[in-house]
Design a protein around this nucleic acid. Structure first.
Length: 541
DNA sequence: GTAGGGTTAG
């Protein structure tokens, strides 16, 4: 029997695995709690029920919430608009979106709040399409959307697939209804554009906003950060300080993430000082960003220190540390930590945690262990692997020379292999010189990204190593036909058979370094084997 | 009298 305590329910609702157990807990504490809130064992009024439901929604207190629902039915409050809206919100926030929809559909009348609650619910449950359809349905009624509704539906577009392009349409609604002065709405639009890689639109909107608050700054910084405009993110951070706007924990997270991607330990340490000054080291988001920053900068000991000092550790924090070990090549320590957490700390791993564990196996070359952990996901934790964990296992097989096994798994898995999977598979084919599988992988990649030179060049490399000069030449001429000009923003010159990559003006120093590294990686392989290929890869405009 | 909103982590 699991003891009923509210902390447990908060966690329980976040995780399906525990959630099924939470149903077996006793219910008396729930009723006791309602009574206490209402004072001295009296019957709860509809106001108390409403407030309590709202609090259950905020704190993910599933058990108490369903007790209140039961009480509502018994007491004839089912038709109360306020209570029903709060109930929709409660179920939606507790990830029971099917129940939320059921309550909403059973309501005889709806208002802005009930519509918005379900739209926001779909959005929070990553069902952007449903949120957008419901918004369209709402437009067909007498109830007009308000700024809450628009924020929720715009938010639903974030993280959706490429074909789900409603951000400009919603932007028009925002302007038409005069919500373009609301920072709430504008920040969700900035986030939406940035998330879709339309950074110019995000910047335009940000610059047009006259009274910028901290959140809108944070959103823009985070947008720059997501799109690898690290220097612009830093500039905006400085601008914020010049305007005497206090950074928040969100700002710190984004800036630490910038320091991670630039691997600038010195600047990262300065931000760490600011974290301490602001007293934010207890924030688990900030702590996680710090661990990530230190481990990506190669200072794993400092990452451990941060972890030790964080009193409230959760799965994300532990995962950061496991990933930190894995990425700096200390796979064994990563796995030891994971095993310790399972046995001693009762860690309940999620999918991302398994990604970190499988990455560790990958870096350490532990095939058997990798397979074991992969199978444990389903058998021990009821988690069906998603494409990221499949990608890890496929990469683990391929890197270690089991190309056939990797290819079979790509066939068996319930997802279509993405660019990441094909390109890691192609580079394994290159290492092990497998012409047949390499050709297939390159062709798939060329179909997906016809203008990415890397796939053509890697395939040409595989052919050249096997002495298949004609095939290699065919691939190179195909590349020259398809890629007619140099990718925007960078160029290169050849001096003494060495490539010197330089950036044109509008490319930041950081991007230019990344491009150099990438090109050096590609061309070094080619130069090594067959110097005459060098002439062919001068793709002129 | 009661309900709903924006940016953050692996």
């Amino acid at each position: 029997m699991i003891r009923a305590n509210w902390k447990f329910f908060e966690t329980a609702c976040k995780n399906d695995y525990i959630r099924k157990h939470s149903k077996s807990a006793s219910t008396y504490q729930a009723l006791e709690s309602i009574s206490k809130m209402n004072g001295l064992m009296e019957k709860p009024t509809k106001y108390v029920l409403c407030n309590t439901l709202s609090s259950c929604a905020k704190n993910l207190n599933w058990h108490l919430g369903i007790q209140i629902h039961a009480y509502m039915i018994r007491s004839g409050y089912e038709d109360n608009l306020f209570l029903s809206s709060a109930l929709v919100d409660f179920y939606a926030k507790c990830f029971a979106i099917v129940d939320a929809r059921k309550i909403f559909r059973a309501m005889r009348i709806h208002d802005q709040v009930s519509w918005t609650s379900l739209i926001a619910g779909f959005s929070a449950n990553k069902q952007g399409r449903d949120a957008f359809l419901l918004f369209k349905e709402m437009l067909g009624t007498q109830i007009r959307p308000n700024c809450f509704t628009l924020t929720s539906v715009i938010n639903a577009c974030v993280g959706q697939n490429g074909d789900f392009e409603h951000c400009p349409t919603l932007h028009v609604h925002v302007i038409k209804r005069g919500f373009d002065t609301s920072n709430f709405v504008i920040s969700s639009l900035v986030d939406c554009y940035a998330n879709r890689g339309q950074i110019d639109d995000a910047v335009l909107l940000f610059n047009e906003t006259s009274e910028k608050d901290t959140v809108i700054y944070n959103t823009m910084i985070s947008g720059y950060c997501q799109n690898q405009y690290s220097e612009d993110a830093l500039k905006l951070f400085v601008e914020m300080q010049e305007k005497n706007m206090n950074p928040t924990d969100h700002t710190l997270c984004s800036i630490l993430s910038v320091c991670s991607s630039l691997a600038v330990l010195l600047e990262g340490k300065q931000v760490h000082s600011l974290v301490i000054k602001m007293g934010s080291e207890r924030n688990v988001f900030v702590a996680s960003a710090l661990i990530d920053m230190y481990s990506k900068s190669g200072d794993i000991d400092e990452a451990l220190c941060v972890l030790d000092q964080t009193s409230k550790k959760n799965t994300v924090l532990w995962t950061s540390m496991i990933m930190g070990y894995a990425q700096c090549g200390r796979g064994l320590e990563a796995l030891e930590l994971f095993d310790y957490l399972l046995t001693e700390q009762e860690l309940i791993p999620d999918r991302v945690c398994f990604t970190a564990v499988l990455t560790a196996c990958n870096h350490a070359g532990f095939i058997d262990k990798g397979e074991e952990y992969f199978n444990q996901m389903r058998t021990n934790y009821g988690l069906s692997p998603d494409i990221d964990q499949y990608a890890c296992l496929i990469d683990l097989y391929a890197r270690n020379g089991n190309l056939r096994k990797a290819r079979d798994l790509m066939e068996e898995m319930p997802y279509d292999p993405n660019c990441i999977i094909w390109s890691s598979f192609l580079s394994a084919c290159n290492i092990y010189g497998d012409v047949e599988l390499g050709r297939e992988a390159a062709n798939q990649l060329i179909k997906m990204e016809p203008c990415n030179a890397a796939s053509y060049l890697t395939l040409a490399h595989i052919y050249t190593r096997k002495g298949l000069w004609n095939e290699a030449s065919e691939v190179r001429s195909l590349m020259q036909q398809r890629i007619k000009r140099k990718p925007a923003g960078w160029s290169w010159i050849e001096v003494d058979k060495q490539f010197h990559v330089f950036a044109v003006d509008d490319v930041t120093h950081q991007q230019s370094n990344e491009i150099s590294a990438e090109l050096e990686k590609i061309y070094f392989g080619i130069l090594e084997v067959s110097p005459h290929v060098v002439e062919d890869i001068n793709i002129e405009a």
